[in-house]
Nucleic acid binder design. Structure first.
Length: 433
DNA sequence: TCTGGGGTCCTAGGACCC
DNA sequence: TCTGGGGTCCTAGGACCC
């Protein structure tokens, strides 16, 4: 048995904790560069604002509907996430943190009324963090996910589902007939693992509701759509095919990519940006105690705008796997020189670290031909990470990243960012009596 | 004017091997 | 008309997730 706990409209809920005046209003949180909506309050959803809607297309609702837009504040959301996760863990013996706002809880051995238990944990999370959550319970992860969706819809759209399923929904406790009517009231596209493409194709084939999918033959599904969907069908039928992953494997690739605040054409600011991306990625790499064997760098023009297109990438192999920031930055910049061509309005670039191996697996070499394998360099990197952790990102960085002021040229737009209420002393809110 | 960022898994096809 | 059989590894691309 599994539960899925996830924050309602998570980013918006985090912002509302510190700005209660946003309750009841249509609110969206915008992606980096204030590009598009990546979280929407229920009121914003009711206005018809879609996930990923470009800000410039919905901006008019600021005046007409009182829509509030905020720039994403991932530092705040990450910290709030830690708090919510540690409380959600109280639901059962094991936990898989699936995303910033979702975790699966393994309920094996948990006794008593699961819905009751879910309601108590939900109330505690709300009281202690201010974030409202939904709890879905089912005999497989896919069913728990579906139950979570139903818990939310039952709360948001009264009448869509039986009201007692709101907020906390246990599908495995439902009588068969009730379960069927709930499943037939839900479209296939809502199922975890059925995306836009397959959802549309299933509809086309006459599989419209979740109940239709449950009644389909797994072997046929496999032949036509592949094993992934077959597993989904079996999970919906109650056969567990996906286990709880409470010790996530180290990443196989690590990326740092950004859209720029405005287009870049010249090489120097591009070198700064790519250097910073490589440095950030290197930090993540060291956090998982890994080495990279290859560095990929890419840059491209906007796919949405007219004009000459540019879209290139190159993989730079490293002579020896490393987590050394200067070595990775050098490789990224060398790659950038290979692909760069003047005369294009580039709006995005990025660095990916590939061919990752555990740092413990070091290839011995006779001669140290560069300093990236020098053991004192590893200690330098530890010191660098510690400084940046203590005094803030970018306190110490590779020289080619340039000084912070230059970022005006390529840094992202964030016109509506809220303070780091919980992670920066000078931004902690002050309560007045 | 203005459209995010970071991942995973699966499959098909080609290269290569004995 | 005929073209061996079986296997591994790699890569690119598609689909999905939040």
């Amino acid at each position: 048995m599994y539960a899925l706990v996830d924050g309602n409209n998570f980013y918006v809920s985090c912002e509302r904790v510190f700005r209660p005046s946003l309750q009841g209003r249509p609110v969206v949180v915008l992606s980096n560069n204030d590009g598009c909506a990546i979280a929407r309050s229920n009121e914003a959803k009711a206005l018809g604002i879609k996930m990923g809607a470009p800000w410039f297309q919905i901006r008019h609702m600021e005046d007409s509907e009182g829509l509030v837009a905020l720039s994403a504040n991932f530092t705040l959301y990450g910290d709030m996430s830690d708090r919510v996760m540690s409380l959600a863990a109280g639901l059962g013996p094991t936990q898989e943190i699936y995303s910033i706002d979702e975790s699966f809880i393994g309920l094996a051995g948990v006794r008593g009324d699961l819905v009751d238990r879910g309601r108590r944990i939900r109330a505690r999370i709300l009281a202690w963090t201010g974030v409202p959550c939904g709890v879905g319970i089912g005999s497989t992860k896919t069913l728990a996910k579906l139950a979570n969706h139903i818990a939310k819809m039952a709360e948001r759209k009264p009448g869509a589902y039986p009201p007692e399923l709101a907020q906390v929904c246990n599908l495995s406790a439902l009588p068969a007939a009730d379960l069927d009517s709930v499943l037939s009231a839900t479209e296939v596209g809502e199922v975890w693992g059925v995306g836009r493409r397959i959802g549309a194709a299933l509809q086309e084939a006459g599989v419209r509701t979740v109940l239709d999918l449950v009644h389909s033959d797994p072997a046929t599904i496999r032949r036509r759509w592949g094993v992934v969907l077959e597993r989904t069908v079996r999970e919906l039928q109650g056969m567990p095919c996906v286990g709880l992953d409470d010790a996530p494997a180290p990443k196989k690739e690590i990326a740092c990519t950004r859209s720029f605040g405005r287009p870049i054409t010249d090489l120097p600011p591009l070198i700064e940006a790519v250097s910073e991306f490589a440095g950030r990625a290197a930090e993540k790499l060291r956090k998982q105690d890994g080495h990279a064997g290859q560095v990929l760098v890419f840059a491209h023009t906007s796919p949405h705008r007219p004009g000459p297109r540019f879209h290139r990438s190159v993989i730079v192999p490293l002579r020896r796997p490393t987590a050394d920031t200067p070595a990775l930055v050098r490789a990224a910049v060398a790659g950038l020189h290979q692909i760069y061509q003047p005369g294009y309005d580039l709006i995005k670039a990025g660095v990916m670290l590939l061919d990752l191996t555990p740092a413990s697996r070091v290839q011995q070499e006779l001669a140290l031909e560069d300093d990236s394998a020098d053991p004192t360099r590893a200690r330098l990197m530890v010191a660098m990470d510690a400084l940046n952790g203590r005094y803030g990102k970018g306190t110490v960085h590779a020289a080619s990243t340039g000084m912070h002021d230059n970022r005006r040229e390529w840094g992202m737009r964030q016109e509506r960012r809220t303070p780091n209420y919980t992670t920066a002393w000078d931004e902690v809110p002050v309560a007045r009596a």
